[in-house]
Design a protein around this nucleic acid. Structure first.
Lengths: 228, 228
DNA sequence: GCAATAGGCGACAACGCTGTTTATTAAACC
DNA sequence: GGTTTAATAAACAGCGTTGTCGCCTATTGC
């Protein structure tokens, strides 16, 4: 009955996955900064040296986790990546999409935050699949007649995602139990949709602001970003 | 020429301030998690024991810094707290306010994030002066005829602040120099105002979403939060 | 089968932070 | 003056993390 710490069967892929899974668990619990390679290795039931072999540094481990989150986000919000490419912007159900984003954020608050921070700090956000699709579809939508004129899709995407991924922090601090959390998620989604439809200020009451915001002579004109 | 590490004149208030200042510097540089009491004490030129005397733990130091940020935010966005109480919601210049918020966020990205996280995670946000005024004025505004109907001020406040304080992360990663950063700050403020005025989707094109969002029979009805 | 490869393991040394405690100094206050 | 107390210095034990070894051995590929 000598419990030899039996050596894990030599399977790099699987080992890497165990480590990643442990990393996810800890990241989801303690957030991006309360995590160490040692801890992860311990939880994964893997030698620390082994963990170092797969992920040279903590940063790379976090990056890898963020990539995983991006995929899950994609799946949860847009569905199967294989079938998404064919979908046209016009047929997307915005309310559904908002709900799914809000729900996923509520279910994985820390992981989403990790992903968001990685993305925002990245010099090349276009490399991220979820961002690519989210911002991209927003841009495509902005070009349609269904969208308000002069939308800055990139900024709007950041605003939406920032709200969606920080709201859970508030929600967790204020919700007593699971049902309340569901309600708060819904409340966010509702306000998000309401804001998208009507804004928060009546334009008639703010002629000067309206003038400032109007970028071109005609409502549908493209807004200029690169003007010095 | 013996450089005795000359003892700091006995002035608790001043010492506390030196420590806080050092904490701010480090927080602004490394963010909330890359900070230690030792480091702060060292930078402040204060004995570690002294630092521990003023702030028992790292958390309390961060909390104290967040409080300071709240005050500065208030000053930068709303102006002198003494004269604010008298101002009526109708006479607030929203564009000015948005610009000031955006600028302050761009100038103090990490500090703002520290504050925001503290606030969101706090069970009693109402204790924070800036949040009190920001969310409060939004609520008061929402009650006027100048606002769109059915605004959920609390959610909207979180969305706005989350956007304002996370946008700088994106901006820093993409701006080459100071002028570009100014431009990006402006771009955020513009989109923020545009969104507030017009939303992003034409309501006529989304009748079902509009129906979902319409909470009451009449447009001005109060939305129900506490319905089970 | 057998050897080589490399995945996985255990141990080492070094570092930094945390808290807490002691004793000492010196400024400030009455 | 004498008391109070902020500030300093020094040391402690304890913890967790970081890197970096060399060894072991199961798996793979011949």
């Amino acid at each position: 009955m000598v419990e030899r710490a039996k050596r894990r069967p030599r399977d790099p892929e699987a080992t890497r996955e165990v480590i990643l899974e442990a990393a996810r668990t800890l990241l989801a619990k303690d957030g991006p900064e309360g995590i160490s390679l040692s801890e992860v290795a311990h939880l994964a039931g893997v030698n620390r040296g082994t963990a170092y072999q797969h992920f040279e540094t903590r940063e790379k481990l976090i990056k890898a986790t963020a990539d995983w989150v991006s995929d899950k986000l994609f799946l949860a919000v847009f569905g199967d990546p294989a079938t998404v490419g064919e979908r046209r912007v016009e047929e997307v159900d915005v309310a559904e999409l908002t709900d799914r984003l809000s729900d996923f954020a509520m279910d994985n608050p820390e992981l989403c935050r990790v992903w968001l921070m990685q993305l925002l700090a990245s010099p090349d956000p276009g490399a991220d699949p979820f961002w690519r699709e989210y911002c991209g579809s927003l841009e495509r939508f902005a070009a349609t007649e269904m969208a308000a004129p002069d939308v800055d899709a990139e900024v709007l995407a950041v605003i939406n995602l920032a709200g969606a991924f920080l709201w859970p922090v508030w929600a967790r601090a204020h919700a007593e139990g699971a049902p309340q959390r569901v309600q708060l998620a819904r409340r966010f989604a509702d306000e998000c949709l309401r804001l998208s439809l009507y804004g928060s200020m009546r334009p008639e009451a703010f002629p000067d602001v309206a003038e400032r915001v109007a970028k071109g002579p005609r409502p549908m004109s493209r807004r200029g970003r690169a003007d010095s």
